[in-house]
Design a protein around this nucleic acid. Structure first.
Lengths: 244, 244
DNA sequence: TAGTGAGATATGTGATCACATTATGGGGAT
DNA sequence: ATCCCCATAATGTGATCACATATCTCACTA
């Protein structure tokens, strides 16, 4: 049980604290956001337990938490799979994100302090670097970190939690848009506008910039999905490199 | 295991379908929304399991789901308790509800059909009856049903799911506002406006009416909490009538 | 050759057991 | 009388086992 760092997650600095269930939960959650799982990908509790070096029990409990958040689906009494969103659901998530993240962006702009300025600037730099290097997994994770840091400034953990739930749902899909070079550039423009708005303490501008970012990503995603609905289905069989 | 209707929930028509974990989950979730639990109330897995006639395992898994939604807290390695919201968190939930439920209300007004009219009217009637009878638990539950039915018309299950999560969090607190006779009347006025707006297919009016409803409830709650912060703390020891 | 059926395998589910940790109560000292 | 310490009980946690059911495989038949 106390084999140190059982649940190693190479690129992510996830601490190995708390119960085994919590570790498994964070491992899976982080993996989801980093795009390590494909939408609809099927997996088994026993395989995950073996890969993680624990018994099935904590894996099951962690999966139940993720099920509550819609990230995984226990389809009937049969099998377990990564959640996948329909086109309509993606639109819903987009609208909900605009509403919630817009709210958080406004609050963040109002509550920004100079120490926050530095941190957000630094995260922006790392995001820029990841975009230049075109490392999709790193970019995805840094992107979430950038947004999360901003929303943390808003000091509304309940809302941030709801927002992160939505990220969990779209994470598996977002590998597709992060791989699009055009989108990366447009996205960085939006991020630049977010940064500027925050530094200017301009709440309406921050909301507008965040809205732009979300809408652009959603548009890009729907375009990619329309064009390559079949590549998405073969992607299910791929992405078997999850076991540490 | 298949003792019929293990998890009887007298006033609520919760179906006894699905796995035991799901039944326990729904039981607890419904109980939360109906105000059967007090904020911060402590309970044990073994007691719940015994009261529900199952083993601790499914109870634990159901609690994990609820933990993910913030309804319960596993405080450290020690004890388990019903979640409780600070004043700031209540404000956050209020703002998030305004953003999300406003969005759903707009969509519902746009997508209403004449069959929906009848259903919403009927639910409004039952809500009025519960308000007149001043039955707080029934009113609370009918209130959630009324809003849920409206938001279902919006056909955005992901967003509705997020909204229900927030309801889960405020459920334990809302027994306090539902017991306030003045609030019940003002709330029914807002509900009347919501109904009218939906029947008129007036999206902006629907958003405004829902916003009013949420804001009034939040104001009433903060007033009650300020005035009776101590009654709330003694209420923790009360509300032991949960076991079926 | 394609469809269908049964047997075999695999998988989710739930109960039970053992353990580490914490809360709690009583007894003793100051 | 009050405070502190230790022993007992209680609680969350995780592993293992047994079971019901879905899925898969392959032989058999039309």
């Amino acid at each position: 049980m106390e084999k140190s760092n059982i649940i190693a997650f190479p690129p992510l600095p996830s601490v190995a604290r708390g119960s085994v269930t919590d570790q498994v939960y964070r491992h899976l959650r982080d993996g989801l956001m980093a795009g390590r799982f494909a939408p609809g990908q099927r997996l088994t509790i026993r395989d995950l337990a073996e890969a993680l070096g624990s018994s099935p029990t904590p894996v099951r409990e962690a999966l139940r938490r993720l099920q509550a958040e819609g990230a995984f689906e226990f389809s009937g009494t049969a099998r377990l799979s990564v959640g996948q969103l329909s086109e309509g659901q993606l639109r819903d998530v987009r609208d909900a994100r605009v509403a919630l993240e817009g709210l958080l962006a406004e609050r963040a702009a109002a509550r920004m302090t100079c120490v926050d300025d530095a941190e957000v600037r630094q995260l922006y730099g790392r995001l820029q670097a990841a975009a230049d290097a075109v490392e999709v997994t790193t970019y995805l994770w840094t992107n979430f970190s950038f947004h999360r840091r901003i929303y943390q400034i808003a000091r509304a953990p309940m809302i941030l939690s709801a927002v992160e739930n939505f990220w969990l749902l779209i994470g598996p899909c977002f590998v597709l848009v992060a791989a699009d070079a055009d989108h990366l550039q447009r996205s960085m423009e939006a991020h630049r506008q977010i940064l500027d708005a925050l530094l200017d303490r301009d709440a309406p501008a921050a909301r507008a910039a965040v809205t732009d970012d979300i809408m652009q990503a959603a548009n890009c995603l729907s375009r990619v999905l329309d064009k390559a609905a079949k590549e998405c289905s073969v992607a299910k069989t791929q992405a078997k490199d999850m076991p540490a």
